[in-house]
Design a binder for these strands. Structure first.
Lengths: 382, 382
DNA sequence: GGAGCAGTTGAATCGGTCC
DNA sequence: AGGACCGATTCAACTGCTC
């Protein structure tokens, strides 16, 4: 059992990742059943498995809103399991393969709802996986319970597991703390559901019924992988895992048997641009602790890593990095800390000090980053 | 599958509760192993089982805070199980008895953490229980992760289940919505851990290592039981379930094998006073929707149900009810709505209109209920 | 008498490396 | 396998004391 977050071990891991990928179908979506597909992957070759398996939702008839409109629920054939037994067998099969292909210090993430997560959790414990945390994705904008018969189902659950009780695992503690305004990241994550421009649509209809938000994958990959790591998603769907992995400089492998999803995913990932080196560098353990407050804006795309920030009189410039820290030459720190250092001031409110360019009505507008924070608050507030 | 929340069914339930209790050890704590104790309870006789079983924590060595102080962990014998198999057998045994003693339209609540809840959830599904919601108790003040090795473990999980997929169950939708400021109650509940005066202590030491907050039981019992219902807690501990049940006019039965806990629970429940009829009446489904904003204050004990409120000139009086609504004779409503109706005014800010008496330095002080809100905000804000 | 500071504590599966 | 040594690591709420 342990945590690796030293420079030395990180370098070792990168070297390993450079040795192996020739055998690995990195950047590809394997066609067919995920268990079969995973059998083609070498043992102990993957750093992370992220899985969003079918939820085994047992919806009776159709579901209508109070106004009579129809809810586009999950009724696809791939989500039908006759009994718990069938679902358990399926779950045991893919978890067994996942365990085999993971490196000894690799990790597994699974997301699910109350319909399936208790079965998945018990089975992965039976297989020897060791739960490190269960994470609650608290949806800031869940679907209401239209009938008023239960509590609003406003969250989903993720399980984060190592290979076993004594196995090592990787956790970017400092990056998570930076992302959370210098407080430890908790086991409950408040994130909006996948909506708006991020949601893949074809002819007005959503391509996939359960597309996950990129902010969720962003946090998963940033917290438990390093640059260059190989991430496998056995239920790739429309490729959220692949898109975020590419953006964050991780290698990815997908398994998906539906051609429609595979095509949508490939198109989507094609468009994705990897962040550059400077933006990807995150805060490390052991360095002088920076104060950063706006990681959530970066995570949710309000400010992209790599964005140039500057003060109102453009005397200083800095680059936004993936974990919400800033870089200015060799100097790095939080929006507050770096602003303070550059000015040689006793303190600095980064929210009003740093500005960025926005596409406005005529040309570029300059706004303080606090404007982005306000937008984010409006979107997330409930 | 269904919900009972009509006046008719509620009356029927009350009649049933009056027929049976002569056989039931209501208001008693049964000594000994909970499975044995439950065997003495008649089949289909209990309305609700609330269970807080051992979590099977499997802790390793000692843990110290960064300042060097020692963390007082759960090391009691009752939390020790050698294997998952042993824990599963234990879980299946008590859940089987719980299922037998529950009425056909009764419900089960279980609370747990990631160490045990996936096993409990899978087993109760195997036994035929039907999960209605999983509820996340988000702790406003969890213990940090001192070593910086994982995400802060900031929540626990509750499962709410009916007897089966087609079984009826009870859900006080309107009371929950009232309690949540006229928004549907969600599956994530933000509540502080049990602390301060509520925490039972003996000689400066906590009596029970895992005492649950009364606000948690308050919400469980208010949402899924009716006045007069019989609630059984197979892991009674220091009697939080019994204390809140008595306060809310529910009947209770406990099972507890530790004499120290039984004695502490009996003393505690003895002191508890049941709320009177008016305070217990909650908002019913189908009535005109009231606007209420201070349910959280009631739930957290800042204003007890039954408290008398009055305007500054004491022209009108009203009683606080369990779900945060007010009653004045036959008139009921929210703090704003009732104030408006009584005055015949176009609107009324209940926060400043209604006052209550507080024990002050010399005799009684009179304060607006907004003062209680301020206290609550100070305590909860994050 | 209130503000402020120091001290305490809570269901926690809480190192890594070298010899 | 075990011991020595190095080094990194905490948030919110309550209690009690001083000033």
């Amino acid at each position: 059992m342990g945590v690796i977050e030293t420079t030395k071990s990180r370098v070792q891991r990168t070297e390993k990742a450079v040795e192996l990928p020739l055998e690995l179908p990195v950047g590809k979506i394997l066609d067919g059943d995920c268990v079969e597909a995973m059998r083609s992957i070498p043992t102990a070759s993957v750093d992370l498995v992220f899985a969003d398996p079918p939820y085994n939702l047992q919806l009776g008839g159709d579901l209508n809103r109070p106004d009579g409109s129809h809810v586009d629920a999950v009724t696809d054939d791939w989500d039908k399991f006759d009994t718990f037994k069938a679902y358990d067998d399926f779950t045991r099969a893919w978890l067994t393969e996942a365990k085999r292909i993971l490196k000894p210090d690799g990790a597994l993430w699974v997301i699910g709802s109350y319909h399936n997560i208790y079965r998945v959790g018990a089975i992965l414990q039976d297989l020897g996986f060791w739960i490190l945390n269960d994470i609650v994705w608290r949806k800031s904008n869940p679907m209401p319970n239209f009938r008023g018969t239960r509590f609003t189902n406003a969250h989903e659950t993720l399980l984060w597991c190592s290979q076993g009780e004594k196995a090592k695992y990787h956790f970017n503690y400092r990056a998570m703390k930076t992302l959370n305004d210098e407080l430890q990241m908790r086991s409950d994550w408040v994130l909006p559901i996948c909506n708006g421009a991020e949601r893949l649509k074809e002819g007005g209809h959503k391509v996939h019924p359960t597309q996950k938000p990129e902010s969720l994958l962003y946090r998963v990959l940033l917290s438990t992988t390093e640059k260059g790591d190989v991430v496998l998603d056995p239920f790739f769907g429309t490729g959220t895992t692949g898109a975020v992995a590419k953006r964050l400089g991780r290698q990815w492998i997908g398994c998906e048997r539906e051609g429609v999803y595979r095509n949508a995913a490939l198109k989507r990932i094609e468009k994705e641009l990897p962040l550059d080196e400077s933006a990807l560098t995150t805060m490390q353990a052991g360095r002088s602790a920076p104060k950063v407050a706006f990681g959530a804006l970066v995570e949710n795309g309000y400010l992209k890593p790599g964005t140039e920030l500057f003060d109102k009189k453009r005397r200083w410039r800095a680059t936004v990095r993936a974990d919400g820290s800033l870089a200015c030459g060799k100097q790095t720190g939080s929006i507050h800390g770096l602003g303070k250092e550059l000015q040689g001031a006793p303190s600095c409110n980064g929210w009003t000090f740093w500005h960025y360019e926005v596409d406005g009505a005529d040309g570029k507008d300059v706004q303080p980053i606090d404007a982005a924070r306000q937008l984010y608050l409006l979107a997330v507030e409930d």
